[in-house]
Design a protein around this nucleic acid. Sequence first.
DNA 1: GCCCAACGACTGACTAAGCAACTATAGGCA
DNA 2: TGCCTATAGTTGCTTAGTCAGTCGTTGGGC
Lengths: 167, 167
Amino acid sequence: MDQNVFDDPRITAIGLLFEASAGLSARFAAQFEEHGLSAVEFEVLMRLTRSPGHQLRMTDLAAQTSLSTSGVTRVVDRMERDGLLRRRACPSDRRSSYAVVTAAGLSRLDDTLPGHLRIIEEWFTGQLAPAQLDALLDGLRRVRDAVHPGATAGSTEPVPAGQPADC
Amino acid sequence: MDQNVFDDPRITAIGLLFEASAGLSARFAAQFEEHGLSAVEFEVLMRLTRSPGHQLRMTDLAAQTSLSTSGVTRVVDRMERDGLLRRRACPSDRRSSYAVVTAAGLSRLDDTLPGHLRIIEEWFTGQLAPAQLDALLDGLRRVRDAVHPGATAGSTEPVPAGQPADC
DNA sequence: GCCCAACGACTGACTAAGCAACTATAGGCA
DNA sequence: TGCCTATAGTTGCTTAGTCAGTCGTTGGGC
């Protein structure tokens, strides 16, 4: 075990990425909590709300978040109990069901988003000069594309996951 | 709920950061698993091994990781059971105890690190031209320093957390 | 020298999430 | 038509982690 390993620039680099990411997550979590949401619940609200009809099949929701399908079942259970979502049967495939954002869910997201954007601005994008931010985002985009193929699929693929032609 | 909110550059920016970070985490986790470690256990091994005497008080270990003190108690329980660490009483303060890396823990880390560095290289640092990587890291460092003060403390503060003069 | 508030670690109770197994439905093919 | 395999969602079980509370220890103020 060479002591110098810990000064390896690769270790430093990944440390920076993770610490920045974790630090921002913590700021977000604190603000979400003010609105009675967890980070996962916020993401679910965002993904559903940006989808046509403010709804997504359970499986597609799982694909768009970091959750397994059983994880989605459970988070949707909780959010349905809290009135933020409801389930809707898929008329054309009786195996499937949709998670749909309710009015309460939309209004919760409305309440939460401005503060969320403010925090991103304050602690992330606003920390950097525009050119510096662009350079950062270019780098991140390249890494993201390498490591997480399909993340850009929603805007380029003919039928993005979560948008079945029927239903 | 304005549909354009989802195209807000701040949302895009934070999405890039999180997706890059999550994608790399997933690659790491797969390689850690080959060596019977979780990401948390790997981080614990790293933090302890880079500390003087390959040891740290439980509280200081908690401060250096993203875990609560009870979380540290539990992960150290598991790693002690697996022979990677052991606890050692602090002679000068009977409330404290140290987690110490064992020979088995060191050798496990030795086995894991080369592959870990290779993955960082392959999916992160090697994806970018040197100048581009520097720009990315500069930006990340600025964000990290804003959002996670004290992360640099280990190298600059007179008595970094986790390095009490006694014991 | 004696309190007593603060600290360090641990434990019990709980929550969130994953995997594997299960049920119901869909759809192709003999 | 009737299988037979694949798919969608849920559930049981297990694991990792948190919070709040506990116990022993410490160290400053009187």
